[in-house]
């Protein structure tokens, strides 16, 4: 556990001594501001529906950029060799890295709390729905961070790792909206694999255990794949 914290601390330090964290926070908050403004002025209701829906989509593109360097860079700089020759379980390295990128995500979400505050000043938002919507967002972020980390473990070039991450995540987004593209029965079957199907109830203020389970599994599967991918590349 202390090794995990050591890795987490190191990742956080690297985020914050370089411009990476600040750029991400600034860009994400800017996008959130735009979505909020459009959402409120176009619908005229005191709700965060448009804002949060769009913030979730943005994660498909933003999170792989946040995680792309995590293994690719370690490998390129040779520091992976140091990590793997120190008496630290690989699982601690993988989970520590995932936790660091998720932490940065939580900070980005923290910034967007400004918008519910604005709504509360002018209107009367449903706080229960706001809370569960954020919970859903955190679920998405957790799963996507794990997937992005997996992409980063596949290839040494960080830009390529970022693109692979985006391409890997897109299907999970699109299957919820693919009715027009796929035959009906197939779209129906695939729908449950998509993120949208499971985000839906969170956005209506309902916490369904199946949806929580979905995001937990999403995260666990990709963390496991990352572990295997880093481990297996030593054998080749």
């Amino acid at each position: 556990m202390r090794h995990l914290i050591a890795v987490w601390k190191k990742e956080m330090r690297i985020y914050f001594v370089s411009p990476v964290a600040y750029v991400f926070l600034a860009v994400y908050l800017f996008l959130a501001g735009v979505f909020f403004y459009l959402g409120v002025t176009l619908t005229g209701e005191a709700s965060l529906r448009v804002l949060l829906g769009n913030l979730a989509i943005t994660l498909v593109f933003v999170l792989p950029m946040l995680t792309m360097r995590q293994f690719a860079e370690e490998r390129r700089q040779g520091t992976l060799e140091m990590l793997l020759t120190s008496p630290v379980p690989l699982a601690a390295v993988v989970v520590g890295k995932w936790a660091a990128s998720l932490t940065l995500c939580l900070l980005m979400f923290l910034g967007t709390l400004l918008f519910p505050a604005v709504l509360a000043y002018y209107g009367d938002p449903d706080w229960g729905v706001v809370a569960t919507s954020y919970l859903g967002l955190i679920g998405v972020a957790s799963g996507f961070c794990a997937a992005g980390l997996f992409a980063s473990s596949l290839i040494d070039d960080q830009v390529a790792a970022g693109l692979i991450g985006v391409v890997m995540l897109l299907p999970f987004w699109l299957v919820g909206r693919s009715e027009a593209l796929l035959p009906d029965d197939m779209a129906e079957k695939l729908r449950d694999f998509g993120v949208l199907a499971h985000l839906d109830s969170f956005n209506r203020g309902v916490i369904d255990s199946i949806d929580v389970y979905y995001f937990v599994c999403f995260t666990a599967v990709f963390l496991f794949l990352t572990y295997r991918s880093v481990e297996s590349r030593r054998w080749r």
């Binding site: 190191k10 690297i14 700089q77 520091t79 140091m82």
Partner: peptide, 8 residues
């Protein structure tokens, strides 16, 4: 090559 994190 020494395994260093250039940012730290």
């Amino acid at each position: 090559s020494p395994p260093l994190y250039p940012e730290l």
